[in-house]
């Protein structure tokens, strides 16, 4: 009889303890503190420049003035982090007039990309390149001139 009481008491403790444990593991229970959401990772422009060309996937001869003799101008940009596969645009303006638009793909976790325009005789003058995100936000505007 005494032994039965001991077994019964132990069983009650077991049931009680299991109930508490089950309550702890259920996040939907009232009075429980939710977990902190993970910080949002934003697409971030790490580096941008205009250059004569790329060398080892890095800008070569970064400059703000380009001679027609070089024949081309490259706009290099590097994003870190890239949270998801997305795209950006390089919008090339000659004297405030949109001259060219290049759509460039970005992939996680980081990505470097570039676009190039060929220079012609009547391209001389002030230029700018807008690096624009998918939502239309301009990350940076790079300004340069094309001269003789």
């Amino acid at each position: 009889m005494h032994t039965e009481k001991i077994y019964l008491t132990a069983l009650c403790f077991l049931v009680f303890g299991a109930t508490i444990l089950m309550a702890d593991s259920d996040p939907d229970k009232k009075g429980q503190v939710p977990l902190e959401p993970a910080p949002e990772v934003k697409l971030t422009l790490k580096e941008a420049s205009t250059c004569e060309d790329l060398k080892n996937s890095k800008p070569w001869n970064q400059a703000v003035v380009f001679s027609l003799k070089n024949r081309k101008v490259t706009c290099y940009c590097s994003f870190d982090p890239v949270p998801e596969k997305t795209f950006i645009q390089h919008r090339w303006f000659h004297k405030d007039r949109l001259n060219a638009r290049r759509k460039l793909i970005l992939k996680p976790p980081r990505w470097s990309t570039f676009s190039t325009i060929q220079m012609r005789e009547n391209d001389k003058g002030p230029w700018r390149v807008e690096i624009m995100g998918p939502d239309g936000k301009v990350f940076q505007t790079l300004r340069f001139s094309i001269t003789d």
């Binding site: 001869n61 970064q62 703000v64 003035v65 001679s67 002030p126 001139s145 001269t147 003789d148």
Partner: peptide, 20 residues
């Protein structure tokens, strides 16, 4: 409005105008 210089002429071939 932002200000942008309007360069003209030719820079010496061994030089590069890196930044302003």
């Amino acid at each position: 409005f932002p200000i942008q210089p309007d360069w003209t002429g030719i820079l010496k071939e061994d030089l590069i105008l890196a930044s302003i």
